[in-house]
Amino acid sequence: MTPTPAENSQLKALIARQRASLYNLLLDPMQRAARRCAKVLDDKQALDETLQHQLQRLPYATFMYVMDASCRQLSDNASHAGLVGKDFNRDRSDRPYMQQLDPERDMTLSEAYLSLRANRPSVTAVQKIQRDGQLLGYLGADFDLRDLPLTREHYEQPGQWRQIKGDPAIRGQVFKQCRIDSALDGQIDLVIPVLAELMAQNGIFHGKLHFSSSRATVWSLEDPYRFHILSHEELMDPDICLAYPHYPYPKDAMVPVESIRPILDTFKHLRFADQTFYLRAGSINIFNGIVGLNFSCDGSHYIPYDQFLARDSAFWEGM
């Protein structure tokens, strides 16, 4: 799946803001630490002690260390648990953070990478150590992304149709297959009104009908972290609504309550419209307003509900 230009732009802008915030947070303590390290660069014991002291000013850092101008480590790794000596004299020139140094800046904040030991997303700040304008080496500080005090600004996905191609092996055999009526297909006119009622009146904010396997998966406002599996027999019985408490329809839902039934009815249309290309599963999320579709060719589509109902988008032209 290739992200759209709008998605790329929005996501990259969010990442850039997070990186700028982190860069500004680290710049002053890294510069101060580098100046102190420059004074004791030729004395390993003093250098290690300086790093251990300066690490206290960077509580989010995993390790701090010093390298010479050729990227060979001159110190132990300073950590909040004490000094770790196994990386002394290590050549770090091939690590991603040393490959990304910005010659125009005294400090470079690397792109995220997977750490060698923990194999977790990490970043490294690399500060030049200079004396009288001469480059003596580098101060490095490693950070595990999970420990950083980022703003955690929420990424809002752009609301536009997305198509995702599925398994090529399934697509290649699509003309050799034919839809076979499932148990849910035979009871669809009983199932749709019940699911519509659950979503409109009983706090189901995400519902997915699996036509081929005759079931639904639903997420409830009362228990949003767990999905429930409902068989077609359970969905045929209006008494299922008694199992879920009544909830007023959420005011912040993007899908208007009156659109739920037309969306489900359109699922039915797509299920029976063609014997070769047919809907295997369809979902609605009332909060992000996205309709999800999975077809017999294993292709998936994610489309805003209003475009889906209007039938005037590129999705419907392809259909």
Rank of each mutant, 00 (worst) to 15 (best):
K39E: 09
P193W: 01
S75E: 01
L139C: 05
S9D: 02
Q56E: 14
V194Y: 01
Q56W: 07
M254I: 13
Q73Y: 05
D142Y: 04
W316C: 05
G137M: 05
Q73C: 11
I180L: 12
F267Y: 13
L116T: 11
T124Y: 05
S214Q: 11
A118K: 14
I170V: 15
E7L: 12
V40S: 05
K251E: 10
L209S: 07
I240M: 02
N285Q: 00
R179G: 00
T124F: 06
R105L: 14
D147N: 11
H154Y: 04
L184R: 05
A112T: 15
D68N: 07
R117T: 15
L235E: 01
V194L: 01
R152L: 12
F267Q: 09
T62R: 10
P29W: 04
P245S: 05
A200D: 01
D274A: 07
D68Q: 02
Q18D: 11
R105F: 04
L190D: 07
Q18H: 10
R146A: 13
G207Y: 07
D142V: 15
L264I: 01
C71W: 05
L136H: 08
Y97I: 14
Q307N: 12
P103V: 15
Q54G: 00
S21E: 10
H210Y: 12
I240R: 01
D42I: 07
P304R: 08
R311G: 14
R171E: 12
V66Q: 06
